[in-house]
Amino acid sequence: MQPMTVHRRDPAPSRFSYRMQRLWLTPTFRFLVRRGLPVLFVLLVLAVVFGSAARRQALLAQYNAVRTQIEHRPEFMLSMLSIEGASPTLADAVRKMLDIPFPVSSFDLDLKKLRAQIEALDAVASANVAVGPDGVLQVTITERQPVAVWRTADGLTLVDGTGHRVASLTKRDARADLPLVVGLGADQAIPQAMALLAAAGPIAPRVRALVRVGERRWDMVLDRHQRVLLPEADPVAALERVIALDQARHLFDRDILSVDMRLPDRPAVQLSPAAFAARQKALGLEAKTGAAKK
């Protein structure tokens, strides 16, 4: 019988496994295998998947379908428009202008654009558009408040405190409560006009209109065709002087046509022709001149 030879496994690593282990212990190699290979694999898979146009299209279509489905869930649908803070006419105008085809998904509406659209209306000072509960599109409007009627060659216009157009007016009588301003560039100086009217005080009931002259200064027109010519600079003080004069000397009760305050140190009063003649007569000067200044 042959002696049994025991084949014991060689405990030494083979040259290949020894080199592999050393390679594996190399930090760069290790990093490449552990991080680089997975990243490369993922990139490869993505490249293969998205390489074909048809697959890309299908995926995009699927994405869009899911998106539409979510957007049209009842939670996101709007069914009515509610406008607050606007007069019925303005509300109607806004409704007509926006013309939203309800029901509509709130994702399809561009609220910022809607708001800009509403604020573009003359009658609207500011607007707020929000998606409220229960499918209501909430529009809150602050209207412009007209403070004066502006007459131009084209017709009558309502303007607000900043001079911005609010609406057109067909008849002056429709807004008899508002003062009238006339002249080119009057809308640019509405705040000054308001200050003048506020300063008019005792003669306020007699003021018929404020006339902008040469886009630079105001004339105040009173009834009985009387007129106060105000300077460009500091008209309120000039007006106050005139009013003080009227209260002290009953200026406007006299037969005069206009008070000229344009030169602050040289106020002038124009008499009516009849008054002038009477004055000439009283002074004994029967000259035939048309008008003279005091």
Binding site: D10, P11, A12, P13, R15, Y18, Q21, R22, L25, T26
Partner: peptide, 18 residues
């Protein structure tokens, strides 16, 4: 050489550095 490889490999494995 095999014995040296055995020793070096085991020591490297324990140290976890090359």
């Amino acid at each position: 050489e095999r014995a040296v490889r055995t020793a070096v490999q085991a020591a490297q494995k324990m140290a976890n550095v090359r």
